[in-house]
Nucleic acid binder design. Structure first.
Length: 161
DNA sequence: GCCAACGTTGGC
DNA sequence: GCCAACGTTGGC
């Protein structure tokens, strides 16, 4: 990363029916596992670092709420092999993963706080700083989205009470 | 529920 | 290495 500030920012997508920001608050810290997209996994493994900040995003799938950024978290572990890739019962089971050569990675994410209000995708993407992010590109499926500090600042401004 | 867009797989 | 088929994502 070329930024001098040191702290990088990301948006982590999750389906609230499966795991919501409220769930994250309840458990405090969770392995952010189940990422099964090579690019997202690579970002998580190679571009994240302990101390980086993340926004929690609820995707709209199977939910009546509009998709929105709802809270903040923090990266609190180095990357490690996602155990669910070896669990036959898990949805993310991958028979091609070996112990010597894992295919998928995760990191522990700690709850920081809810935003003052959910910021809907439509509102986010009206902001020039965010319209340029992959979150706002049509058809985008990346579940770990790097964002610039300026974009993060915009979300924080919108999310203040 | 619909369906466009996407990433991955697998046949060739 | 190509690319069609497939399964999944995700906004609406």
């Amino acid at each position: 990363m070329t930024q001098e500030s040191g702290v990088n920012w990301f948006i982590l997508k999750t389906e609230p029916m499966t795991f919501s920001v409220d769930d994250l608050r309840e458990v405090g810290t969770t392995p952010w596992d189940g990422v099964r997209n090579f690019e997202a996994s690579k970002i998580l493994r190679q571009h994240m670092a302990v101390g980086d900040q993340v926004f929690i995003y609820h995707s709209g799938r199977r939910s009546q709420d509009s998709p929105a950024v709802v809270g903040m978290g923090q990266v609190v572990s180095e990357a490690y092999a996602d155990p669910s890739q070896w669990q036959q019962e898990a949805p993310g089971f991958d028979p091609r993963s070996t112990l010597q050569r894992p295919r998928w990675w995760c990191r522990d994410i700690a709850y920081v706080r809810h935003l003052g209000r959910p910021i809907p995708l439509a509102e986010l993407c009206r902001m020039p700083e965010l319209a340029a992010t992959r979150l706002c590109q049509r058809g985008n499926r990346l579940s770990v989205v790097p964002i610039a500090a300026s974009a993060a600042a915009r979300i924080l401004a919108l999310g203040a009470f």
